Simulated scan of single mutants.
Amino acid sequence: MAPLEAAAVYVGINILLLIYLSSRVVFMRRSAQVSVGHGGNVDLEIRTRVHGNAAEYIPSMLVALITAAFMGIPVLWIHILGTTFTLGRVIHAFGLSRSVLQARVLGMVLTWLAMIVVAAMLIFHGLTGFAPLHGLSGQSI
């Protein structure tokens, strides 16, 4: 599997996650008969925030993964970063939806960890032209 193909897997999964979280808002809006805002409905407010939080983080990470793939970051690292980030987003959505603080914290730690590592890799590779941790993939760039 090439790095861009690996990135495509995480793009697809995270798009489906956004659609799922959005559909939860849409269905709650219908049942609560609220077209804008949350109308005082706490469950709708939480679902809106869960979707909003995902929508705030997912796009930039997907751009980062695709950029990393194009820049030659090894496929193993695309998988490590994509899995860590996606797992973080799912755990955070669960924790925020159910008010489980530990899940929210773990989800954010995994999210930020993946984003910080990919940001560092992109900056390093952009400045040096060298793919960090190249030897771990078994592939040349």
Rank of each mutant, 00 (worst) to 15 (best):
A2W: 12
P3G: 03
P3Y: 09
L4C: 01
L4Y: 06
L4V: 08
E5S: 14
A6T: 10
A7V: 13
A7W: 10
V9E: 11
V9I: 13
V9R: 05
Y10N: 06
V11M: 01
I13P: 00
N14D: 12
L17P: 05
Y20A: 13
S23Q: 15
R24K: 13
V25R: 02
V26A: 15
R30H: 12
S31I: 03
S31T: 12
Q33P: 00
S35T: 14
G39P: 09
G39H: 11
G39Y: 05
D43A: 12
L44E: 08
E45C: 02
T48V: 02
H51S: 10
N53P: 01
A54S: 15
A55C: 05
A55S: 15
E56Q: 06
Y57P: 01
M61P: 02
M61S: 06
M61D: 08
L62V: 07
I66Q: 03
A68D: 04
A69L: 04
G72H: 11
G72I: 14
P74D: 11
L76M: 04
W77M: 12
I78H: 05
H79M: 09
H79T: 13
G82P: 04
F85G: 01
L87G: 01
G88A: 11
R89A: 06
R89M: 09
R89K: 13
R89I: 14
V90Y: 06
I91G: 00
I91S: 02
H92R: 11
H92M: 03
A93H: 05
F94I: 15
G95Q: 09
S97T: 10
V100W: 06
L101C: 03
L101A: 14
L101K: 12
L101H: 12
L101V: 15
V105T: 14
L106N: 04
M108T: 14
V109L: 08
L113K: 08
M115G: 10
V117M: 05
V118S: 10
V118W: 00
A119W: 03
A120W: 14
M121G: 08
M121W: 11
L122M: 04
L122A: 01
L122C: 10
F124L: 06
F124G: 09
L127V: 15
L127C: 14
T128L: 02
F130D: 12
P132S: 04
L133Q: 06
H134R: 13
L136N: 07
S137N: 04
S140P: 01
S140N: 11
